[in-house]
Simulated assay, not measured.
Amino acid sequence: MSTGQAMGAAEALSPREATRAILVDVERTMESVLADERARWATEAPRGLALVDTVGALVAAGGKRLRPAFCVSGFLSAGGDPTDPRLPRLAAGLELLHVSALLHDDILDCADQRRGQPSAHVRHEATHRAAGWRGDPRRYGESVAILAGDLALVYADQVVDAARDAVLREWTMLRSEMMVGQFLDVTIAAEYDADPDRSRWVAVCKSGSYSIHRPLSIGAQLAGRSDLAGAFQTYGAALGEAFQLRDDLIDAFGDDAAVGKPTGLDFEQQKMTLLLALAIRRDARVRKLVLPNGGGPADGAAVDTDELRGLLISSGIRDEVEAHIDTLVAGAVAALDDTPLAEPWRRELTAMAHEVAYRDR
C-alpha cells in the first residue's frame, strides 16, 4: 500500500479506530524492544534476563494504555500523518515511562498486587525466599523492582531517541514533573498535610500533566501544532484533577477484584489524598478520626477505615466530590470549544474525558 493509500485508509476510519490502529504498532514497538534486549542478554549475561522479563511482564499484563492513547489522539487531532514512524515510538516511550513509575510506585505504596498479579517486588522476594539465598528477601525484591523500573526508563528514552526540539522539551518536562510530583506526594504523606491546594497541585502534576496534558502536547508538537498547547494544558489540568479524584474514590470504595490491585491502601497508610484533604476541611468528624491533634490515631496507628468510608458517605463528601468531578469534566471539554479541531476529534476527546473521569478501575 502506498503512503497516499495508507493516509486515505486512515482518514476513512473514525478517530477511535484510527487511534486503535496505531496503538497496535505501539504494542509491537514495545515487544520489539524487549525481544531485542532478551536476545542481547541471553548471549551476554543470561541471568540478566530476569530483570528484562520483569519489565516485560508488566508490559504484557496490559493496562489502560491511557498515555499512548492521548499522545496518538493529540497527534491525529492536530492533523499529523498517521504513517509517521515516530508516532508509535513516542507513544511506546510514554507507556514504558509509566511502567517505570508503576514498578517504583508499588514499592512506595507497599502494594502487593498490580494488574491482578503479584507486584514485581513481591515476586522477587518470593524467589529469594524459596531459593534460600543470603540477605533479606524483602530488600532483594525491592532492589530488583527498583532496577527494573530504572531499566524501563532507559527503554523509554531509547524509543523516543528521534524526538527533537519542541517534542523533546515536552518529554523532558513530563519526566521531571512526574518525579517531582511523586516526591511531593511522598512528602505530603509524611507531613500529613491536609491542605487541599497542595494535594490538588500534586494531582494536576502527576495525573494531569503526566497522564493527559503532556502526552497530548507531545503528539501535537510532533504534528507541528504548538498552537494547541494552551487548550491541551487547560483540558489536561482539569481532567487530571478529575482523574486523581476518581483514583481516590476507587481506592476508597472500589473492589479489589475489579480494580486488579488492593483497594483501601490510602486509608490504611494514612495517605493524604486529595479526597481525604477535602474531607478533613469539610467535616469535623473526619478531622477527629484521622488527625492526631484532633484526637485521631498517632503516627503509625491504624485508622478505622470502615468508619471513615461511612463518614465520607453520610457527610455528603462522596457526593460533593462526584459533583466536583462533573464540573472538572465540563471545564476540560469546554477548553476544546475554541480550538481548530475537527468536530469528530472534539467528540472523541470529549468521550475520552468521560472515560477517564468515570472509570471504575
Rank of each mutant, 00 (worst) to 15 (best):
D326P: 02
T3V: 10
A242C: 07
L103A: 05
A12L: 13
D326Y: 06
D136L: 03
A277W: 02
L275H: 05
H121S: 09
E343C: 01
I146M: 15
Q233A: 15
G74I: 08
A156H: 05
Y235A: 05
L51M: 14
E11R: 14
V72W: 06
A91M: 11
P88Q: 07
L103F: 04
D36W: 01
D112S: 14
L245F: 10
R282I: 01
D283R: 04
G74L: 11
I212P: 06
A330M: 07
L97G: 03
T127D: 15
W201M: 13
Y235Q: 04
E241T: 12
H121L: 07
A131V: 00
H98D: 00
F253D: 12
A18C: 08
A60L: 12
T305Y: 03
L147V: 15
M352P: 03
R359T: 04
M272K: 12
L222K: 05
D106P: 07
S32P: 00
I146T: 13
L289R: 09
L49E: 09
D81Q: 02
D53L: 10
A302T: 12
S100G: 15
E44F: 09
R67D: 04
R38W: 01
T234H: 09
R67W: 01
R309E: 04
D299N: 10
D256Q: 13
R134A: 12
A69Y: 06
G141K: 03
S73F: 07
F70N: 03
L312K: 10
R123A: 07
A242W: 07
A130Y: 01
A69N: 09
Y155Q: 09
L245S: 06
E170D: 14
D81R: 02
S73G: 11
M173R: 14
S211A: 13
I212F: 11
Y140R: 05
A190M: 13
R282K: 07
A238L: 06
S119V: 00
G331I: 01
M30H: 01
R287L: 02
V160D: 07
W133P: 00
A35L: 12
Q233H: 11
R86H: 11
G296F: 10
L291V: 14
E177H: 07
G219P: 08
E11Y: 00
I22H: 03
A334Q: 14
S314K: 11
Q244G: 05
E268F: 05
E37C: 08
S73A: 15
G230D: 15
G181K: 08
I250M: 06
F243H: 05
S211M: 11
M1K: 09
S143I: 00
A45T: 08
A335W: 06
A101D: 02
F243L: 10
Q269Y: 05
T19G: 02
P68Q: 04
I212C: 05
D136H: 01
G295L: 09
L265Q: 12
R346I: 08
G116L: 07
G62C: 02
L13S: 04
V55D: 02
L49S: 05
Q117C: 00
E343K: 12
K288Y: 00
G141W: 04
V356F: 03
I188T: 13
T54Y: 04
S176Q: 12
G240A: 02
V52F: 08
D283T: 02
V202F: 07
A145N: 08
D306Y: 00
A252E: 01
A342I: 00
D266N: 10
L34T: 01
